[in-house]
């Protein structure tokens, strides 16, 4: 009783802003208002599983996986270097990663729109140093670039925070027992940093899967992702039933991926980051 009372405001808050909206989505997804009344229907879900929308879903998952993978391959070494003892400008570099996040996300994505133009800054630079021009605006590559750029800090920071907490004594012990750098990394650092990696993957994969701004601006509105489809149903077409049905499928997908993640995540540290 004493423990639940302080929770009350939070419970009320969560009910109003999380539970009720979720029920509304379920309600809209399973009903239709076709005949001036409300009728239970599965039509919205039948429509979601049409091939054309399955293709959109597949494309979204594919782009999100690619972006997450790129973030991991770029982010892990960066985090490793930053966490290293030899690295003295740690805080400066962390600041450099965080500062762009102070700026509006939309503005940063808009900037890429101008940078990547045919006659934009990137191409002018490439021409200056004698390289062929790069025409990736309005393609999948531009969308992946936008996602990696926007979500990279969400990969680096959790990994860095786990890596920097690894006890130096463990590494010294590994060295004492004759492990070289590669073995130390593979058998000590990597397994210990796994919770951070899992956090990073989750924090990049989810926004990447649901984004609609990046794909609309940098993909030129033709690379419709699942987020765009949902946005279109609510903001342009006004078909809340279909929009809710896609959202529900989306929620289920995210729940599944979270379940998979937490299966791998046994350390306490990763959880503490959330």
């Amino acid at each position: 009783m004493n423990r639940t009372r302080p929770m009350l405001p939070y419970m009320v808050w969560m009910t109003i802003f999380i539970v009720v909206p979720l029920f509304l989505i379920v309600y809209y997804a399973f009903t239709s208002t076709e005949f001036n009344g409300v009728a239970l229907t599965l039509d919205n879900f039948r429509r979601v599983f049409q091939p054309v929308y399955m293709k959109v879903l597949w494309r979204s998952v594919k782009l999100a996986v690619v972006s997450t993978a790129v973030c991991l391959f770029v982010g892990y070494p960066a985090a490793l270097i930053m966490a290293g003892n030899a690295f003295s400008r740690k805080n400066t570099v962390i600041m450099l990663f965080v500062i762009p996040m102070w700026m509006n996300f939309l503005l940063r994505t808009y900037a890429w729109l101008t940078l990547l133009e045919r006659s934009g800054f990137v191409n002018q630079f490439l021409a200056r140093i004698g390289l062929p021009s790069l025409n990736i605006l309005y393609t999948d590559s531009a969308v992946v670039l936008g996602m990696v750029y926007n979500f990279l800090p969400f990969m680096i920071l959790p990994i860095y925070s786990v890596l920097s907490k690894i006890d130096r004594g463990v590494l010294e012990a590994a060295a004492d027992l004759g492990a070289n750098k590669v073995v130390t990394f593979l058998r000590v650092i990597l397994p210990l940093s796994l919770p951070g990696v899992i956090s990073g993957i989750t924090m990049v994969f989810m926004p990447a899967l649901t984004t609609f701004v990046i794909s609309r601006l940098l993909g030129g509105g033709q690379y419709t992702l699942i987020g765009n489809l949902i946005e279109q149903q609510f903001l342009v077409v006004g078909d809340w039933g279909f929009g809710s049905a896609i959202s529900m499928v989306m929620i289920i997908l995210i729940l599944i991926s979270m379940a998979v993640m937490s299966f791998f995540e046994d350390g306490e540290e990763g959880r503490a980051l959330w």
């Binding site: 133009e117 309005y138 993909g219």
Partner: peptide, 17 residues
């Protein structure tokens, strides 16, 4: 189609995109 857009179209046409 290069892109489906609205307000950006005029800027992209001006820059020769």
């Amino acid at each position: 189609v290069l892109a489906y857009a609205l307000d950006e179209i005029k800027d992209k046409m001006v820059s020769g995109e």
